[in-house]
């Protein structure tokens, strides 16, 4: 049962629970009209302590398409939060108005902390460089749609693997399927953090490879997950300038890749995938965006228990 639960970490959902969300997602895609009033009378609170128009729109569109309503803020400067209210008080207050809350926060672990006090389900909509589990739902659903399986895959993760929260969530979730191999492609400064290596890769005995160059491994991949090298994650400008162009995907780099490679990206992109790649049949990142809204619809339905 998912009713009343929080979604903080992508591992909070079992493989079976993920499947139930994906089955519902497919139903929604096939018969959207059947779901357009299912959340009538329900309110989604969107508390965005840092701006992220894309994720906020995706959550809001999801709730509106289910017939529910929304309230929230997109920058703490415009709310009582700027007067120094603590997170537990904000969530206890908003939790009396809203039936479910999507929480985006620049500090890592904020959703876990908030969930300890919230009277209604909290969905982590991204916390610092830590986790972004609803993006992971979109990522995995897209892989399932394209590959028709979630096991026996070699998945390349490329770019900022240190602060890339979508990468952390995806690794945690995908390593639960059989025979999933990971190829971690990043500059040495931006490798996957130690806690993921200890807790996920080593403890589960996952086969993984760490490399610096995309060109060296692109031919062995079934899925290529590109990420943005974000400027604000760097501690200094010089490092950013030195590294930002090292991991750009273009048609030339794609030449040796498999015919049925699936290229994914959590978006927004800066320049890590050239626009010329958009028309390649292996590019699935716009489909992934659309899936993001549908999986959020399914998740909201499940957590509210209105299915």
């Amino acid at each position: 049962m998912l009713k009343g639960r929080h979604l903080i970490d992508s591992q909070d959902l079992t493989v079976r629970e993920l499947k139930s969300i994906f089955d519902l997602t497919t139903e929604i895609i096939n018969r959207p009209k059947d779901f357009s009033y299912i959340c009538d009378g329900k309110i989604l609170g969107t508390l965005f302590y840092e701006p992220s128009t894309r994720t906020k729109f995706s959550f809001e569109a999801a709730m509106l398409r289910l017939g529910g309503k929304i309230l929230g803020f997109s920058e703490p400067g415009s709310s009582s939060v700027s007067k120094g209210e603590n997170l537990p008080d904000t969530l206890r207050t908003v939790g009396t108005y809203a039936d479910i809350i999507a929480l985006r926060h620049p500090k890592e672990g904020a959703p876990r902390y908030g969930a300890m006090y919230s009277p209604v389900p909290i969905i982590n909509a991204g916390d610092g460089g830590h986790q972004h589990p609803t993006q992971t739902l979109a990522d995995i659903y897209t892989i399932l749609q394209v590959k028709e399986r979630l096991d026996n895959l070699t998945i390349g993760l490329c770019g900022d693997l240190k602060f890339g929260r979508t990468v952390h969530s995806l690794i945690k979730a995908m390593t639960r399927y059989d025979n999933v191999k990971l190829v971690l492609i990043s500059p040495k400064e931006l490798k996957v953090p130690e806690n993921i290596k200890i807790e996920v890769l080593e403890s589960k005995g996952i086969e993984y490879l760490e490399v610096e160059k995309l060109e060296d491994v692109i031919d062995i991949l079934d899925v290529l997950y590109m990420t943005r090298v974000q400027k604000e994650r760097f501690f200094n400008e010089a490092d950013y300038i030195r590294l930002k162009d090292s991991y750009i995907l273009d048609l030339k780099k794609l030449e040796p890749a498999k015919e049925d490679l699936a290229i994914l990206h959590p978006l927004p992109r800066v320049n890590e995938i050239k626009m010329e790649v958009d028309d390649d049949k292996r590019a699935y990142y716009f489909q992934q965006v659309k899936n993001g809204m549908y999986v959020r619809m399914a998740l909201i339905i499940k957590l509210l228990g209105v299915d």
Binding site: G109, R112, H130, P193, I198, E199
Partner: peptide, 11 residues
Amino acid sequence: AIYKCEYCDHI
């Protein structure tokens, strides 16, 4: 003797 932060998972 490795612990992780319950909130952010930091080692």
